[in-house]
Design a protein around this nucleic acid. Structure first.
Lengths: 161, 161
DNA sequence: TGAAATTAGATGACACGTCATTTAGTATAG
DNA sequence: CTATACTAAATGACGTGTCATCTAATTTCA
């Protein structure tokens, strides 16, 4: 096995491991407020882009690629999100947070602030940025880059090439 | 929003996005050989650690945390894996690749070699290592670090602190 | 030796996450 | 005006991934 092979395999599995670890921690933390990680991403995005159609919401979520029909269905059932028909085009559905959803949005925001602060304490700030810069390069030619850009999660949009 | 906050949120979602992108590409590639990404990780690990108990296999998989009972059940049904009772302790089950499974192992190995080569072409080799070093530090105090170490995916095991 | 603790694996329950297909509403082209 | 193309959302199908609980076998120890 060449060194390049080792580096690539190590990279591949460390990305997977980091995502899994983060997901498990988010599972536990969100469970305490009665949510899943996917639901909390929806609530955060919805809190900043209200009202929005299902399709447009789908284009803002990192956690899921297609249109989040069923994710939203569950959230409607749980009283977190409301659907509203589009006045002139019945194909669209507008989504809004309910008061309960809005309340959760603030709880999540507080939680995330703490989480980001803690994460920042683990590394020199510049080290995290360098990792992100490399990942951004890796993702820049994939469809998901659009989503990241719309979410304002990319640095230097001019250099996404 | 502070810059540290932005850096941490960007990092968080880039990890998620990279994992999702990789998973989707693996989905597509493995589908061509009739497998899922989780199944292909099992086959690769099993190819190098045969025979092995379910529990020990679970401790070698990055893709899943618990014991992979159902993942293996499906692979047994699909004729990829065989179960064999432990001679003296009926709690254990030994797992082995079937001839079909062994064949798939070689196909996967070839595919991965190409994938790792392609990935290596995207970055200066040292850049990928630096990212991995940071991720390794992040994961070093989590349970998943054991798995990574057993899989030989960590560099400088002495410095996991 | 025999009850209690421990262990490996199986199972239940739940919510994704992906791709493919279907349904239904709207726009477009002839 | 109507058949066709297009679009948004819903649905089907499938395989995870996680946590909790259960079952069965074995070990421990009073």
């Amino acid at each position: 096995m060449t060194s390049a092979h080792f580096d690539a395999e190590r990279f591949r599995y460390l990305i997977l491991a980091a995502q899994r670890l983060g997901q498990r921690q988010m599972n536990a933390s969100m469970k305490a407020i009665g949510l899943t990680p996917a639901q909390s991403e929806v609530i955060r995005v919805l809190g900043q882009h209200q009202p929005i159609t299902l399709k447009d919401l789908g284009e803002l979520l990192i956690c899921e690629s297609g249109s989040p029909s069923r994710l939203i269905d569950r959230m409607v059932q749980d009283g977190l999100v409301e659907k509203e028909p589009h006045p002139s085009d019945a194909r669209f559905v507008y989504l809004r947070l309910t008061p309960t959803g809005t309340e959760k949005a603030r709880t999540i925001e507080e939680f995330e602030e703490n989480m980001y602060r803690d994460l920042g304490l683990l590394f020199p700030n510049q080290e995290m940025s360098m990792v992100s810069d490399t990942l951004q390069k890796l993702l820049s030619h994939s469809p998901i880059a659009d989503t990241l850009r719309k979410r304002g999660l990319l640095r230097d949009p001019a250099e996404t090439d």
